[in-house]
Amino acid sequence: MSEPKLTKDRRLPGFLRDTHIVTIIGLMVLVCIIMMILSPSDFFSGKNLVSMIFQFPEYGILAFGMMACMIAGGIDLSLVGIMNLSGVLAALILKNMVQMDGTTVLNPGMVLPALILAIVVAIVVGAACGAFNGFIIGYFGLPAMLVTLCGLQLYTGLAYGITGGPAINGMCDAFKNIANGTIPGTGIPIVLLIFIVVLAAVVFIMKCTVFGHEIYFLGSNAKAAMYSGINTLKVTIMTYMFSGILGGISGILITSHLNSAKSSNGSTYTLLTLLIVVLGGIHPDGGKGRVLGVTLAVLLLQMIANGFSLMHVSQNAKTFANGCLLIAALVLSVVLEKRAEKKAAAAS
């Protein structure tokens, strides 16, 4: 313990002491500078900013689910499966309750109840899938990686079995508007609002509730959590359920965004969400990380993706770049950890 070091640290606000967050902010500035040189008029146009807002919430929300599980010392690879299963069920409800003729709705009175039912079902199914993952992990003591891989297969399989393969298309406009519309009269995208509400809820849960703290405890040391009187099975189930609910919300957004539901949508999102959380400073061993870091990482990746599409670079270049970035982020965190360890060893 060295007292002077601590007083020196106090000069900076908390989040600026986090190397990951500083790195992300630095990278965001870098992307801005590069884009300013390459195509300033496009990147900083209002139209471009709005188009960015329409894209990130669906995977941003998934990333929060991944974040919660990783902080709890696990991983959730089934998120994309949960997302598609929820999306497929929501789409089915809408297709069956709202009768359509082309793009006109024949029974407008049913639109609102159908919409509410679809959203509720999507979230409930997400929660149920997540709780199932959590139960298997906690009760049987199996590795989260294995169980959620299995969950991915199961939920994707369910979605595929239900649809029989082809996508469900052509939902009513009211549903399409969730992810594609703006709040009337303001031009603010509805998804932005949803993302902010979800973000606020996630921040609140992780920082201000007992459950949030218990997630960190579980991830730091599951045995000590048990010996501290924390019901680890319950917390595990709740964490994956939380993740599943976020998967369900994402399911609604992506289905609405694409106006189509099938079992293989968003297949690149598993990698993307892992990249986001690792870049955002969530430690793969659990117990460490901040919502702020993940949020910034979501925005950074959206900026990069947007930069790529403005430069007319293909989706595959993005995949390639994301892979490289993931390795770079991991290497960075390993290097930072080693440095911190050395510092700690020298200080003690």
Partner: peptide
């Protein structure tokens, strides 16, 4: 990635996977 840089194997190979498939089509 795994033995020298000690990265978690799942995440490291997932990254390799996207580098391979993205890079190939690119």
């Amino acid at each position: 990635l795994v033995s020298y840089l000690k990265l978690p194997p799942l995440i490291a190979t997932l990254a390799t996977s996207s580098i391979a498939s993205g890079g190939l089509i690119l």
